[in-house]
Design a protein around this nucleic acid. Structure first.
Lengths: 148, 148
DNA sequence: TACAATTTAATTTTACACAATTTAATTTGA
DNA sequence: TCAAATTAAATTGTGTAAAATTAAATTGTA
């Protein structure tokens, strides 16, 4: 790549990833509105649908989000009746997160969300899996310790 | 894919894209801090470094951002001395955006930013180009009119 | 045992994102 | 020509993100 091209917007991997992420969020929004949740809340629910119970720390690890983002989000989800936040008795720093019935029930109506993207892409499952693996590998690479 | 797997976080393309985008932003942050700009401001600058002059509308088209996001951002960049915002005399709805000398000078120190990602990924240029093309195609696919 | 170090979540601050709405300017069509 | 429709940017309101900081709890070590 010529040096001049290095700073062209269309050559920025970061921008394509960023823009795609936002476009997917936008695609999902009307469907998520029907569920009554925002996109990051949907991601929280995905984790909780997989696991009986979680903690703020664990959700943060799975979603690469810190408690600055999670705490207000979880509070709003608690207020909305989707989950409960309980201080762990054995270690009071830890806050356990568990779904309510209401939160669990939402799962049944959530299949349309990933399906909408797969339909839009019209790709073979294999292609999607390969891309997923690529992206996950990249996340690990980017997350590596900064040598500075 | 089994129906049950459809809602697993690790199978969500949307999450991988979202997480990667945020990790790249995080990687860039210290470098951008030295330039004195945020990541979205960096994207604005990339467009302006390519073009003599732009408008809020055009920046929005290139970056898929609306004026709710752009206007405050551009205002802060104007205050920081990076660019100017001028009402177009022929169509007063239009606001022209142009770089100051200070804004232009930043370009020379910006090469390290995309380079940091390429170095972290250690990929061949061809691989990156192919991935870029894939992601750009996906953006178009997701952006297509909603058939509802 | 006492205290320093570390951990967990909460809080504070700043900057986005985006839907909805508003304001002002321009274009369109009768 | 003029009102209706459309456009461009600004504003409003809500919800993230993330760095920095704080408060409380727990762990590690002398």
């Amino acid at each position: 790549m010529k040096k001049d091209d290095l700073l062209k917007l269309d050559n920025q991997l970061c921008f394509s990833v960023y823009a795609l992420s936002r476009e997917i969020t936008k695609l999902y929004r009307p469907l998520l509105d029907e569920l009554g949740v925002t996109y990051p809340q949907y991601l929280v629910l995905l984790v909780l649908w997989e696991e009986e119970s979680s903690t703020v720390k664990h959700l943060g690890e799975r979603l690469y989000l810190d408690s600055g983002t999670l705490t207000p989000m979880l509070k709003r989800m608690e207020i909305a009746g989707l989950l409960r936040r309980d201080r762990d008795k054995e270690d009071e720093r830890t806050v356990r997160i568990s779904l309510t019935e209401k939160g669990e029930k939402l799962r049944a109506n959530a299949y349309c969300i990933p399906e909408s993207l797969l339909k839009r892409l019209g790709s073979e499952e294999q292609e999607v899996d390969r891309l997923l693996a690529t992206l996950r590998g990249m996340i690990q690479q980017v997350q590596q310790q900064i040598p500075n």
